[in-house]
Computed example of a mutant assay.
Amino acid sequence: MNTARDLAIVALETAPGRPVEQGDLSLALAGAEVVDLIEAQALALDGDRILPSAQAPTGDRLLDEAASSLVRLEPYESVEDWLWRRGRGLSSAYVDDLERVGLTTRARGRRIPLRTGRTELVDSDARRRAEERWTAGEPVLVALATAAGIRDEPAEAREDLDDDAVSTVLAAVGGAVQELEAVRQRKEIEDAAFDNVWRGL
Rank of each mutant, 00 (worst) to 15 (best):
V20K: 03
L12Y: 02
G102I: 04
A4I: 02
T3M: 09
L201V: 15
T105A: 05
Q22A: 15
W134P: 06
P154Y: 06
E33V: 06
G17T: 03
R133C: 03
D152P: 00
R106Q: 11
A192H: 01
G23N: 07
S124Y: 06
V95R: 11
E21H: 09
L83G: 12
R111S: 04
L29P: 11
P139I: 08
G47E: 08
E132F: 07
I189V: 14
E80W: 03
R133P: 03
D160W: 08
R184D: 15
A30Q: 09
L45S: 08
V166H: 02
P19T: 13
T168E: 13
P19G: 04
V79S: 09
I38G: 01
D6V: 09
V34K: 07
A147W: 04
D160H: 07
L51C: 10
A155V: 07
E159Q: 10
E188I: 06
E65G: 00
D6P: 09
S78Y: 08
I189Q: 12
S69T: 13
A171W: 03
V35N: 01
D163Y: 14
D164S: 06
G31K: 02
D152G: 02
R133W: 04
G87R: 01
V101N: 09
E39I: 11
A42T: 11
A171N: 07
L37R: 10
M1G: 05
F194M: 07
A193M: 05
L161N: 01
V169H: 06
I38Q: 11
V10Q: 00
K187D: 15
D125Y: 01
E159K: 06
A54P: 01
R111C: 00
D48L: 11
N2P: 12
A182N: 08
R133L: 08
N2D: 14
K187F: 14
V122N: 02
L25R: 04
A165N: 07
S167Q: 13
E120V: 13
V122T: 13
L170H: 03
L29G: 12
G89T: 05
R106L: 07
R61W: 04
A172H: 00
P57F: 00
I50L: 14
A66I: 13
V166P: 06
G31V: 11
M1W: 06
G102Q: 03
A42K: 12
Q55F: 15
E190Q: 10
D64V: 09
G117M: 02
S53F: 10
E132T: 15
T135R: 13
A182W: 00
E80N: 05
L25N: 04
G109K: 00
L170M: 05
I50A: 06
E159G: 13
